[in-house]
Design a protein around this nucleic acid. Structure first.
Ligand code: ZN
Ligand code: ZN
Ligand code: ZN
Ligand code: ZN
Lengths: 133, 133
DNA sequence: CTTGACCTTAGAGTATAGTCCAAGGTTTAT
DNA sequence: ATAAACCTTGGACTATACTCTAAGGTCAAG
């Protein structure tokens, strides 16, 4: 399989596959005649694993580590995997928390404003921002 | 006031002030003798306005527009302000939603794994990812 | 009169995850 | 034989909000 066919099979672009290779997520054999990258069906499985990891919110760096474990399950422990997942979960929770704070502020601001067509001189959003909420 | 003093007064770096100037958020007068940026106390108010906007989750581009309105309140309407805030609120809600999805997936994954020190061959996180949740 | 603290500029680097381009070589189909 | 479709590389560009560097000019104190 050449890169275009792998890309087709996995619904990604060839650019993405080359990018993942550069980042150390996938390797490729080369056709010695023309230098073309060559893949097997196990690379489809690998690309699908990567896509599932992304759906779960893992970064490419996380995924590189998860792939190493996945391809060498006997040399890794559940602890290794769980630690990785917990660290990502924690980062997501931190982001979620600050996003929720921001959401609350914006929601309050939006609700306070009449949204009318008259001058913004009396706008409660502007005065709330001015005062720092 | 020179840039260092404004930075000090607002707890930002001089780099940040120059960056905001480049992005069109603040302007500065120049001392004709030496080319140094010169600021007045209204620039402190402006910087504080910017900081409050950031706390509310607005982007620098949003803030540039908000500042234009704030400095010309009579030429703008509540509608203008509210529309800006609603658009940002919507973007935050979209981000929040995808982050919550990811949080749910990660939380389930973490809970499913024993986290033990034995081989990862039976790891439920890996098999869940493999299957695509 | 020199040292240190301040100011100037343009430009590069940080992080993330790609995406696009140019300039060239290869393969496939007509 | 030639055009379309594919492949190669390195490097630039996207978005966001800074942060840092280099190389130089200015200013106040001792
Ligand atoms: Zn109003
Ligand atoms: Zn209003
Ligand atoms: Zn286990
Ligand atoms: Zn496990």
């Amino acid at each position: 399989m050449r890169i275009g066919e792998l890309a087709e099979n996995c619904s990604v672009t060839t650019d993405t596959i080359r990018f993942y290779e550069k980042k150390g997520l996938i390797k490729s054999l080369r056709n010695p005649d023309n230098g073309y990258r060559t893949y097997s069906s196990s690379d489809i499985k690998k690309m699908m694993f990567i896509k599932h990891c992304k759906q779960a919110g893992f970064s490419l760096e996380d995924i590189r580590d998860l792939l190493l474990i996945w391809e060498n399950k006997m040399d890794a422990s559940c602890e290794d995997v769980k630690t990785l997942a917990e660290e990502r979960l924690h980062k997501v929770e931190v982001m979620l928390s600050s996003l929720q704070t921001v959401h609350g502020i914006l929601h309050t601001l939006v609700q306070s404003c009449c949204g009318g067509k008259e001058s913004a001189e009396h706008c409660s959003i502007l005065s709330a921002i001015e005062k720092g909420e």
